[in-house]
Structures are given as C-alpha cells and as structure tokens.
Design a protein around this nucleic acid. Sequence first.
DNA 1: CACAACTAAGTTGCGCACAATCAAAAGCGG
DNA 2: CCGCTTTTGATTGTGCGCAACTTAGTTGTG
Lengths: 154, 154
Amino acid sequence: MTSQGGELDLNKQVCFALYRASRALTQLYRPLLDELDLTYPQYLVLLVLWERGPTTVRELGQALDLDSGTLSPMLKRLATRGVIERKRSDSDERSVVVHLTEQGDELREQAAAVPERAAGSTSLDPSELLALRDSLTTLTDAVNARRAHERGTP
Amino acid sequence: MTSQGGELDLNKQVCFALYRASRALTQLYRPLLDELDLTYPQYLVLLVLWERGPTTVRELGQALDLDSGTLSPMLKRLATRGVIERKRSDSDERSVVVHLTEQGDELREQAAAVPERAAGSTSLDPSELLALRDSLTTLTDAVNARRAHERGTP
DNA sequence: CACAACTAAGTTGCGCACAATCAAAAGCGG
DNA sequence: CCGCTTTTGATTGTGCGCAACTTAGTTGTG
C-alpha cells in the first residue's frame, strides 16, 4: 500500500479545506465587488483584459481554466453592462476578440482598491502566503496534467 | 502603507490559486463520484452523516459552511435518490433530522475507495499537504471571523 | 476542388452557492 | 397567558461551472 489511512484522511481534509477556503475568499471579495457591480469571476476576466488588452475567448479560457459554457453567458452579461465588447476576429472568423469599453477601462481605477481592502484579513504572513500560492499552483497543475493525461490516454 | 504592491499582487494570486485549485480537485473527484452517482458536495454531506449519524440540517450547515438555500434542494435530491431520509425532530418541530437509509449506509463502502483513487496526483509530499491544510484552515477561519465581525459590528 | 477532421463559440440542462424573503415553531418578558 | 423576538428550514431568483451538443469556420488530404 502506498497510502495508509492517515494520508487518505489528509487528502480528504485538504480537498475540503480548499473547497471551504475558496468560498470564504469569494465572500470576502463580494461586498467590495458589489460596489463595482461585479462578481468575482467577472473581476477575474477584467483583470486579464486590463493586463493583456484585447483577448480572445479562447485565451480567456486558458488563462482562467474556464470553458465557453461558462464564459459565453458571462461575457454576454459583461457586454450588456457595457464594460466589454465582442468582435469577430478578421483573420479567423471563428474566434471572438473581447476588448474593454471606455467604461470598462475606467473601472480599473476603482478595482485597484479591491485587493488592498481585502488584504489584512488573511492572518498569514507573506512568506506563508507565498508558500500557499506555490503549493496550490503545483497541486493544480499536477491535477490538471493528470486529468489531461487520463482523457488523452485512457 | 501597510501593504505595498507586491503583497497586493500576492493576495490576488492566492485568491485565484484557490479558485483554480478548488475546481481542479472537484474535477479530479468527479469521475470517481460519478460511479456512485454523487456530486462532491453531496459526498461531503454523506461524509458527515457516516461519521456522526443522524444530523440536523443546521448542523450540516455548520459542518460544511453551507446555508439552507444550498442544503435544502440538495438534501431533497439525495432523498429522491434514496440514500437519506428527512424527519422533523420530535423535541423541536422546527429542526429536520437527516439520516442515512440502508442504501446510503451501503454507499459508504464504495466511497471508501474514493480518496485512495484520488490521491497520488497531488505531487506534494505529506508534510506539504499538512502545511497546506493548516494554512487554508487558518486563512478560512480568519476570513470567516472577519466577515462575522463585519456583519455583527458594521 | 471536394470532403473529412478539427477548432472556436454558443446553447442547453443540471447542480451548486448565496442573497433575500417567508412561514412555522419555540422561547421569553411582562 | 399573550404578543414579540429568535430560530429553523424552505423557497425564489441570479450567476457561475461543467458536460454534452450544435453551428460555423478552418485546415489538411487526396
């Protein structure tokens, strides 16, 4: 046996801790993002657009690990709100380029205050946060790689 | 300034890493839980019931950080599937006690294999997993405490 | 060129999450 | 005992997240 009971319990506990932590942090962001009339996933999309400029739906999906089933209706809502616009690419009529409107660009300044206001409630010091981020990234990449492998070579 | 730019970026990165990791692990569990016809949140409910025995909806909510808006329809689906039953408490007609059916109890054996099959794709050693779990728990408790404080003393 | 294989988005359906609201039951002060 | 507050769970409405499917455009191959 490669894993005895304790390790299995630990795995379960890490999964649940992740599930709980992710929702708790989304809740922490919520009141701040409510002022901008944004949800956390919408905020993530805008972060990508603020950083990269015009981006295809496909690239957004790769950056955020989301598929078109999630992004399409979400982008539609953001477009209705007037913060983004969508346009078919000239070079490839299949892909859709998402870009910020002036209003979306202006949101950036208000949004800049969000992380500052959300910080300070972590009760973890920077070195712990760094280790946490790196562990999570390692974990996620390994899991996604395994899933891709399982789908590719069943 | 108590937080300079780097720390704010780090906070954003930790939030996103959490968001991504939580979904990745749910996806890792999905094919295993599909065989039991369970979702991950449903599996969590059953874990509580297997460990504690009959439990009120309120206690489930406290154990999983979920409210009745999430639990009520979920428990209804689990009841329709025949793995749990709900019964008004005799001592307090407001509260509903959730208990396993025989079928729900039998699921426990199959479910025991789930963590084992999900493990081994973490690419983190036990000490890192332990640190990860503890950091996440500390973080979540601090965030939830702050949110409770904000709601209690606005 | 024809045509199959592939790719990018969108659509549909379902199950969470969560805010807001409601009704029933219990507890409580007077 | 009686109204008032609190507690418990259910309901409603919105927005993800994701599987499965559809549509339209592109690419590769004979």
